[in-house]
Computed example of a mutant assay.
Amino acid sequence: MKKRTMMIKVTATALAGVMALGMLTACGGSSDAETTTATADTTASTASADAKKVKVGISAENKPYSYMNENEEYEGYEYAILCEVQNRIGDQYDMDIVMDEWTNLLVGIDTGNYAAAGGSFGYKEERAEKYSYSAVPILNASKFYIGYLKGRTDITDMESLAGKTVATTPGLLAETIVLDWNAAHPDEEILLEYPDGYETISAGIKNGLYDAYIASSIEMLNFNEQYDNFMDVSEDSVYESDNGGIYFLFSKNETDFQTAFDAALKEMKEDGTLGKLCEEWVGEDLTE
């Protein structure tokens, strides 16, 4: 898998709360900038001098969507999309991209720190009341499965999770799946824990602290591969979303920025760039 490099400008920025230090970057840069791997078809671009600055948050630990590699360089599908969008709207907007903890992303939109955020956000009606979804999903992942330590035979479906502990993240659709199950089956309650990041989740499943993890087929595959396929996965899906799209989210106060962003994203979908980026970073074109 060949990836070209882009020039970026990198500075440190203090992030109050969970992360002591975040990384702020723009998808264009000066001659003395560091390099980072980005996309197969994207070349470096610089926003015009009068372009409006906007800050966009993305998850720091969401491989293959957004993450920092071993050289502390930004990589990932969502990051590559942002860089390509920047190439197309640089006459209007200059995006600074901040890698942050997933739980900080929507808070950042709420507080006005971020104009938009990318964090593998699925569609939820209550979320749509607060934020605007990108006009085009960046991929579709409608079916959800249970992952559990390889060799276990006692986990097959939601009913088999009764009394067991599922690791998840607040706000994910997987959390909603469990909460909805508990509301409908009060005598078969599934316990929820909220560990910080894939590494903690994988360690907890391996040592028996957590029994299972619920995720879309794409996320489950990527998570499992990242940690040497330590999980078996349920044969049947436990949930199928009516809208399995993954989107960028925007502040409802950033209508002009979203209009420009959406136009670029639609163009990328139509000219095949989005599908190529998805194939490069996710492993196959899942944009349809």
Results as ranks from 00 to 15, higher is better:
Tyr93Thr: 01
Thr273Ile: 10
Tyr227Asn: 12
Tyr247Leu: 06
Leu149His: 06
Ala212Gly: 04
Lys63Met: 05
Ala135Arg: 06
Asp242Ile: 15
Asp180Leu: 09
Ile97Asn: 06
Gly28Ser: 12
Ile205Glu: 04
Ala183Ser: 07
Thr36Tyr: 08
Leu106Tyr: 04
Met7Trp: 15
Gly275Asp: 00
Val85Ile: 11
Lys276His: 12
Tyr67Lys: 09
Tyr239Ile: 14
Glu129His: 12
Leu221Arg: 10
Thr35Gly: 01
Cys27Ser: 11
Gly57Glu: 04
Tyr74Arg: 09
Phe248Gly: 07
Ala117Cys: 10
Tyr198Met: 08
Gly76Leu: 13
Ala26Phe: 04
Glu235Phe: 06
Arg152Trp: 08
Ile177Phe: 01
Arg152Cys: 07
Phe230Asp: 06
Ala115Leu: 05
Glu175Phe: 11
Thr13Asn: 02
Ala38Cys: 10
Glu219Ser: 09
Ala141Ile: 13
Tyr210Asp: 02
Gly244Phe: 06
Lys150Met: 04
Tyr65Ser: 14
Leu149Gly: 15
Val107Gln: 09
Leu221Trp: 07
Gly272Ser: 09
Ala115Ile: 03
Leu249Tyr: 08
Leu173Asn: 12
Ile146Trp: 00
Tyr114Val: 05
Leu179Lys: 05
Asp100Tyr: 09
Ser202Pro: 02
Glu73Tyr: 11
Ile218Val: 10
Thr11Ser: 10
Ile58Ser: 04
Asp256Glu: 15
Asp242Gln: 14
Thr273Phe: 02
Met19Asp: 13
Lys269Tyr: 03
Glu225Gln: 15
Ser132Arg: 11
Ser132Met: 15
Gly17Phe: 01
Ala135His: 04
Glu159Arg: 14
Glu126Ile: 12
Pro170Arg: 11
Glu288Lys: 10
Ser237Tyr: 13
Glu235Met: 15
Ala264Phe: 08
Gly275Ile: 00
Ala128Val: 06
Met6Asn: 13
Asp94Pro: 04
Ala135Met: 07
Gly197Pro: 00
Ala47Ser: 14
Gly272Ile: 06
Ala12His: 10
Glu75Met: 12
Leu105Ser: 05
Pro64Gly: 12
Met68Phe: 11
Met6His: 00
Tyr65Lys: 05
Thr39Pro: 04
Thr259Leu: 05
Val18Lys: 11
Thr156Asp: 01
Ile155Lys: 00
Ala116Ile: 07
Cys27Trp: 04
Asp96Ile: 06
Phe257Thr: 09
Glu101Ile: 14
Leu24Tyr: 01
Ser251His: 07
Asp271Tyr: 14
Tyr131Ile: 13
Met158Lys: 01
Ile177Met: 04
Thr156Ile: 11
Val136Ala: 02
Asn222Lys: 14
Gly119Tyr: 09
Arg88Cys: 13
Ser142Gly: 14
Cys83Val: 04
Met99Leu: 12
Ile190Gly: 00
Thr156Leu: 03
Glu280Leu: 09
Phe250Gly: 02
Gly204Trp: 00
Met1Arg: 11
Met23Leu: 11
Asp157Val: 08
Gly29Leu: 03
Thr168Leu: 06
Ser66Leu: 03
Lys53Thr: 06
